[in-house]
């Protein structure tokens, strides 16, 4: 399934956050969106997922979601958004229950996604018993359980320490390699962007416009920590962003 942003503009009160953003997200590719704070990256993601409506422009989807897809546009949140009163498997069954999937069928799906996210032994644990990295893996497992057409990841690794972040990036790459999925990945971390993105969309400071779209051809599975050519991409992105970020920072203080 493909998804297209068509001339999106949006304002919160008097503050325009996004202006004339158009882009198409290709099927089975990961698109990373980077930009300085307050440029409307997360807002854009909520438009994509239908959690908010833009003032102008449309979000269009092309093609049908794959067979067995319960929730075509599925989020993974920065702060995991796990229900603390439900166990790991309970959190996953939460999103199945409304589709009438219970009992053995639910159990099979839960076992499968827990296995894929290496959480097989933790089905009955409560969120408070898990580390940050494991919590996010549960959130990813939950997203996988509904078999999404497009995954919308909102800074999914920002709340984690850097080692955990590296491990989870490897996990995401593994997941994609085994079964490619479409994803929009919002981050402010350029290393994540060049590691996971087939495309990196650079937004300008507020009001956010598309500054440049960087395409990285190297297959995900071959990318590694400290890769030379990735570092070149990262450096290029940083040059694009540095001035924007500095100006955005000053603007925020100004507000």
């Amino acid at each position: 399934m493909e998804i297209t942003l068509d001339n999106i503009s949006h304002a919160y009160g008097d503050t325009t956050v996004l202006q004339d953003v158009s882009h198409t997200i290709n099927a089975q590719q990961i698109v990373c969106i980077v930009g300085p704070s307050g440029c409307g990256k997360s807002t854009l993601l909520r438009f994509l997922g239908g959690l908010e409506q833009p003032d102008a422009g449309r979000v269009l989807q092309y093609g049908d979601p794959p067979e067995g897809c319960l929730n075509p546009l599925t989020f993974v949140f920065q702060d995991f958004a796990l229900l603390p009163w439900r166990s790991v498997s309970g959190n996953i069954s939460l999103v199945l229950e409304d589709h009438g999937i219970r009992g053995a069928r639910a159990k099979a799906i839960i076992e499968d996604v827990l296995l894929r996210t290496k959480l097989g032994d933790f089905a009955r644990a409560l969120p408070r018993q898990l580390s940050g990295g494991m919590k996010q893996r549960v959130a990813i497992a939950r997203a996988l359980a509904v078999n999404p057409a497009v995954m919308l990841l909102d800074e999914p690794l920002s709340a984690l320490d850097s080692q955990t972040r590296e491990l989870l990036m490897d996990d995401l790459v593994d997941l994609w390699t085994r079964q490619p999925f479409t994803a929009v990945y919002v981050t402010h971390n350029l290393a994540e962007a060049v590691r996971l993105g087939h495309q990196v969309v650079v937004l300008s400071r507020r009001p956010g416009r598309i500054r440049e779209v960087v395409t990285i051809d190297k297959p995900l599975a071959e990318r590694e920590f400290g890769d030379r050519d990735l570092e070149a991409h990262q450096k290029h992105l940083w040059q694009l962003l540095r001035d924007e970020a500095r100006a955005a920072d000053a603007e925020l203080i100004h507000d």
């Binding site: 959690l51 949140f77 958004a81 229900l83 409304d98």
Partner: peptide, 27 residues
């Protein structure tokens, strides 16, 4: 109740009643 949990419920297409029963009330 943590609004991100409610937003999560919406993002997975949970019904209004499910969100009240499974997220708002226990929260």
């Amino acid at each position: 109740v943590d609004r991100t949990l409610i937003r999560m419920g919406q993002s997975f297409g949970l019904s209004w009643w499910s969100i009240v029963r499974k997220i708002v009330f226990p929260g």
